[in-house]
Design a protein around this nucleic acid. Structure first.
Lengths: 340, 340
DNA sequence: GGCGGAAGCCAAAGCGCTTTGGATTTCTTT
DNA sequence: AAAGAAATCCAAAGCGCTTTGGCTTCCGCC
């Protein structure tokens, strides 16, 4: 069933039918009713390719997905996607993933914009002075950054959580508990979120006249294995920390394993706070010692990004609007006063 | 830069340029060379919407993604996607995710097919007599099922791993080690893979005259928490198993925690074999006791599905071709002879 | 030398939609 | 009752590509 058939069936022109369907005012309410009715009854759906060709609107939001042997997509992505999908579904938006070699991201962005394949895109895992953001700004397509970049000479729209405050808060709590040697096991520090977290932690330390020596800061990809290694390294050092803040629940699995392997225990020997993105399949309260966390649902962020993207597509949202979500600090059994 | 401009610039008709670019024979080699050259030099890329409108080919592969509060997408998906993306990238295929309410999947499939939004789709997490498969067969769009369904009255193309053999093998090994009380912590048994695994395990048991009593079989969503609960239930039973086979590494995290909580140990009290889909961020060798596993890379499966989908799109692969991958059985420290 | 057939190229017709620029009808207004 | 305004509706022109159905050339051959 296409427009032509439908309009013929209604003895109306394609113009009128199209207008009726798209809510243009030049058509009487009665006609509109009739048209919409018939459309629904016959399950008419405008052909997206044709519509896109005519309007340039795609009804899709895009994501340029780096792939390749060396690129590990992490489980965060799928949670984010769930949220995005939740919203997108209710607004008839599809999602296009454009797989790209890491060194061809720019080309891909240019392509999908030039071809009008998508109406908007989102950018994840931004780095400082992220070139993708500059490019998108330049290309003029609606976009939102999930996270933040830094050091760009213009404002941009983003959604981020307050990583700095979260880790500052967490660290402050540890300090109040008497910890002076706090370590940070962070994600890859080429990413802004990691930088922010480090900053927050350092601020809290500094506020109490404490420092974060290099050997107490580890920045690595967030895997269980890396968490394990990092922790061993930390705890086998002369100046071992009595508290660890960890950027990911996955890493924390490794952290806990290392602590146990070393014959130590949580929180008696080491206090632990981790960041929790809220996965249904791995919960901090279910760790052998329930984990204190800074918590923020990455899924909710996905939904919100979709919502804002939709708003931008339809022109409801414009300009460089930044949104920073506060992060919960959830206290559970994994923290205690510093050992004497 | 569009076809018109390019052809004008070459003083050729759009027809000829189009043909030259698409490898049709009615154009001299010299002209073709010239055209291709100019196209490359000016970075000409045919507009996909237009091409799609004209040909009906989309250059995309689709996935209907169930979403909603109650739907938990799991980390397997992202690994599979990575693999798919790896291949898709090298063949200029994009990926469309169509988010759908669980009860509207059929509508969505019909829509994307009717609109020719995608050239092919893949189906994941199939259940027995899966209606989606029947629908796709009926609609006549190229597709591949990742996994298997059962009880359909026609053949269909799929890629699956040999879950039955894998779990049979694993169980046989446990039996050889003297275990007679083997338990299975399985995924949701509405899905075929879970059924196959159960079948494999039962076969191995039966071959030795053993049975799988109901209290030793647990089928639940594959989360850490469920793994924990299941294990407690199993081990607190009078007839507690001495060996557990577990369908997922995530669950196994919970399994190990439960065993420890109960003051038992692996493998002295309980032997453990889990299925490993090969995640970069969680490796079986890094469990406190290295885990024996049945192993098959879900990422590789993703790549292969993409490859076959591409082959189907271009007509190189046809008919109901099934592909079943053998599964490695990797022995590590988590299994030992049954306790006396 | 003329004819048949390749080889090489082109004009134009879609694909299904939106949108511009009227045309027609109906309703007000004076 | 005539004229202007408003309300409806329509024909046709794109959007950028592929593809059908020719139309020229250019050879080779009898």
């Amino acid at each position: 069933m296409n427009l032509k058939q439908l309009s013929h069936m209604l003895s109306l022109s394609q113009t009128t039918v199209s207008r009726a369907l798209n809510g243009y005012p030049e058509v009487s309410e009665e006609t509109r009713r009739r048209v919409m009715d018939a459309a629904k009854r016959h399950g008419y759906r405008p052909n997206p390719s044709a519509r896109r060709l005519a309007t340039g609107k795609a009804g899709m939001i895009g994501y340029v997905m780096p792939t390749g042997a060396s690129v590990d997509m992490d489980p965060h992505f799928v949670e984010f996607l769930s949220g995005l999908g939740d919203y997108a579904r209710s607004h008839d938006l599809d999602l296009v993933l454009s797989p790209t070699a890491a060194d061809e991201e720019e080309t891909t962005y240019r392509r999908i914009v030039a071809n009008k394949q998508v109406d908007a895109v989102y950018v994840s895992s931004p780095r400082p002075a992220d070139r993708r953001v500059a490019l998108l700004e330049h290309l003029g397509i609606p976009y939102i950054v999930h996270g933040r970049t830094e050091g760009l000479d213009f404002e941009y729209p983003f959604l981020d959580i307050d990583n700095e405050a979260a880790f500052q808060e967490a660290t402050r709590l540890l300090i109040q508990l008497g910890h002076t040697k706090v370590a940070l096991i962070n994600g890859d520090d080429s990413q802004t979120f990691a930088i922010h977290r480090e900053r927050g932690l350092k601020k809290a330390l500094a506020a109490s006249g404490l420092k974060l020596p290099a050997h107490r800061l580890i920045s690595v990809a967030m895997t269980e294995e890396n968490g394990y290694r990092a922790t061993r390294r930390l705890l086998e050092h002369d100046e071992a920390p009595t508290a660890i803040v960890c950027s990911s629940l996955f890493m924390t699995l490794g952290v806990v394993r290392a602590i146990r392997d070393l014959g130590l225990s949580v929180p008696a020997d080491v206090s632990l706070i981790a960041h929790d993105d809220v996965f249904p399949w791995l919960k901090p309260e279910n760790f052998s010692v329930p984990l204190s966390t800074t918590r923020s649902s990455i899924r909710a962020a996905g939904a919100r990004v979709a919502e804002r993207l939709a708003a931008r597509i339809s022109g409801l949202e414009t300009g460089p609007r930044g949104e920073i979500w506060p992060v919960d600090l959830v206290v559970r059994g994994s923290i205690a006063g510093a050992p004497a």
